[in-house]
C-alpha cells in the first residue's frame, strides 16, 4: 500500500564471479544466444590488492543484463574451501538442504511456450541440458546449472496475473509481518491471520478494471 511513486525500470544488471570465462561465454553467448553488450577491462587498484579483472555483460532481453567478473590470477579457492553443494560463489556442506541451496537464483522471462521450448532445445543440444521442466502455480520453467554452478531458470507465465492476486499478495504480506512479529510463526498462524484480513478487506475490494467473474 505504498504511497511512493514507483520509478525503477527493471534489472540493470545482476553480477556474478566466474573462474571459467570460456565456458561462461560459450553458455550464454553461443548456446543461449545472449549478445555480449558491454565489457570493462580494468587494472586492479586500491587498498585491497584488487586483481586485474574483466567485467562482461550479456543482454538478457529488455536491455537488462547478466554480468560476470573474471579476476586474473585467481581460482575458486579465493572464495574459500570447495563446498559439497552450491556454486563458485556460494558453497554449502553436504547436509544443507537442496531447497535452501536452490533458493537464490535468477529466472529469465520469455513471452510464451514457443520461446521456452526454443531455449529448451538450445540447452538440450549443449553440455548443459535442461534438468527440469516444471509447471508451478502460474508459471512454467526450465532449469539447468550454468558452467559456474549457478542455478539458472527460464520461465513463462501460464496466464496473466489477475487483479485479485494483487489483493491476495498484499494480504499475505500483511499477515506474514503480523505472524513473524509474534512468537513461533507457523503456516497455520499465517492462514488464520490472513482469514481475518480477508474478512476485513475482501468484501470492499473491487477490481480496478474488468476482473474475471465467476
Amino acid at each position: 500500500m505504498s504511497e511512493l511513486d514507483h520509478r525503477v525500470r527493471g534489472v540493470d544488471h545482476v553480477a556474478f564471479p566466474t573462474f571459467d570465462p570460456a565456458a561462461t561465454v560459450h553458455f550464454y553467448r553461443d548456446v543461449l544466444g545472449f549478445p555480449v553488450v558491454h565489457s570493462i577491462c580494468a587494472a586492479g587498484w586500491g587498498p585491497e590488492q584488487h586483481p586485474d579483472f574483466i567485467h562482461f555483460f550479456f543482454d538478457i532481453g529488455n536491455d537488462d543484463r547478466i554480468a560476470f567478473f573474471y579476476y586474473f590470477g585467481t581460482d575458486p579457492s579465493v572464495g574459500g574451501p570447495r563446498g559439497a553443494k552450491g556454486d563458485v560463489y556460494g558453497r554449502f556442506a553436504a547436509d544443507v538442504p537442496e531447497y535452501f541451496v536452490r533458493s537464490r537464483h535468477l529466472a529469465i522471462h520469455v513471452d510464451g511456450e514457443e520461446d521456452l521450448l526454443e531455449y529448451r532445445r538450445r540447452l538440450d543440444a549443449s553440455d548443459w541440458p535442461v534438468e527440469m521442466q516444471i509447471q508451478h502455480e502460474t508459471i512454467e520453467s526450465i532449469y539447468t546449472h550454468d558452467p559456474n554452478g549457478y542455478f539458472f531458470e527460464i520461465t513463462r507465465a501460464l496466464r496473466p496475473v489477475t487483479p485479485q492476486e494483487d489483493l491476495d499478495a498484499g494480504l499475505t504480506i500483511d499477515a506474514l509481518l503480523d505472524v513473524v512479529s509474534g512468537p513461533d510463526p507457523t503456516f497455520g498462524k499465517l492462514l488464520a491471520r490472513k482469514a481475518e484480513l480477508i474478512v476485513e478487506r475482501a468484501a470492499g475490494w473491487a477490481p480496478a478494471s474488468t476482473g474475471p467473474a465467476s
Partner: peptide
C-alpha cells in the same frame, strides 16, 4: 478461503459436492 483464480476453480466445486458444505463469496474469495 480460496482465491478465485482459474487454477483454483475446481476446489470449491469439489467441496460443494458434500451436502454439508456451503460455498459462498467474499470479494474475490
Amino acid at each position: 478461503y480460496v482465491l478465485d483464480v482459474p487454477e483454483n476453480i475446481a476446489v470449491p466445486k469439489v467441496a460443494a459436492e458434500d451436502p454439508a458444505v456451503t460455498v459462498g463469496r467474499l470479494g474475490p474469495y
